[in-house]
Write a protein that binds this DNA or RNA. Structure first.
Lengths: 160, 160
DNA sequence: ATGTGATGGTCGCAAATGTAACTAACAAGC
DNA sequence: GCTTGTTAGTTACATTTGCGACCATCACAT
């Protein structure tokens, strides 16, 4: 019978690897900081792209818009971020981390970075290069490559 | 401020890529065959390892045991698989695809394979090699490498 | 200005999910 | 035999999720 060899089937491998990594990371920001996965992603995205809209965050982090909406609400209630109306387009609002949000973020980052280091420590330099090249190509194929138009557009809205 | 660069943060990239792939695949087995993600995984695992126990499927496919239980139930109701008690250990049951289940499976496989082909078509042979090597190493580090003991043990139970 | 369609974001509700408790069966010690 | 501890699988309940409907706003045409 013609059948798939799951161990070599790329989508399967991707999913398993992603699940394993997520699981281990959740132990960090979940247990220690009480964040859900979408909350952490929104936090990280806003730290890197301050004052983005919910839509931008969702597109960038591949999060469904209701997930973003709920995560933003939760982070807002905790005072980790605040919302700022865009006078140019009153449908959307800019999101920005509060001082508290930033403080928490910089506590979490080193733990995340350490995790990645541990992961990459097992790779020879040559293999690591290989890994990153593979991902770059994969993202290209999947249409996930950092969309310059998206970021450009976000800039424009902020009037930069 | 010290912060992560999400575009280069491995866990983030893994998740995004996996999500994008899952999304596209679900369009195939979901819309066309009415399968959920866990159902499809159970189906594929049983096709490759006929007559496994639910536990084996769960461990192999990184699925929570309640997910497996429910997926098996659904597939059973559809008569895509049947359960067979293990007389040596009456707590567990062997799962096997029915004729109908196999028929459906072989319909789905080519579509999955075609999807992967399309994905890999964008890779130079050198890059593809790179990709697979990277994943092999990644799985090693994450402890996902095909666990020979697991499969061995499954064999033993079946009395092979 | 008014109508038409599109967009950002929220919300209700049904479906999917995870945790923990549970049942039934095994295994080892006494 | 009995007791204790463990394991395979199911189920109850609470949480999370996604779809669709929704509102307010904008963009553009007439």
């Amino acid at each position: 019978m013609k059948q798939l060899d799951l161990e070599h089937f790329l989508p399967y491998r991707l999913n398993r690897a992603a699940a394993a990594v997520s699981e281990q990371l959740r132990a960090v920001y979940g247990r220690k900081y009480g964040l859900t996965i979408p909350e952490w992603r929104v936090l990280a995205t806003l730290a890197q792209f301050p004052c983005s809209t919910a839509q931008f965050v969702g597109r960038h982090a591949s999060l469904h818009k209701t997930k973003v909406s709920r995560a933003v609400q939760a982070l807002d209630e905790r005072r980790w971020l605040y919302r700022k109306e865009n006078p140019q387009d009153r449908r959307e609002e800019f999101l920005e981390l509060t001082k508290l949000g930033c403080q928490q973020y910089v506590l979490i980052v080193p733990e995340m970075a350490r995790f990645e280091e541990r992961l990459l420590a097992a790779f020879e330099p040559e293999d690591a290069r290989c890994l990153f090249q593979a991902f770059a190509r994969l993202e290209e194929v999947l249409g996930l490559s950092p969309d310059p138009a998206l970021i450009q557009d976000a800039r424009r809205k902020k009037g930069v």
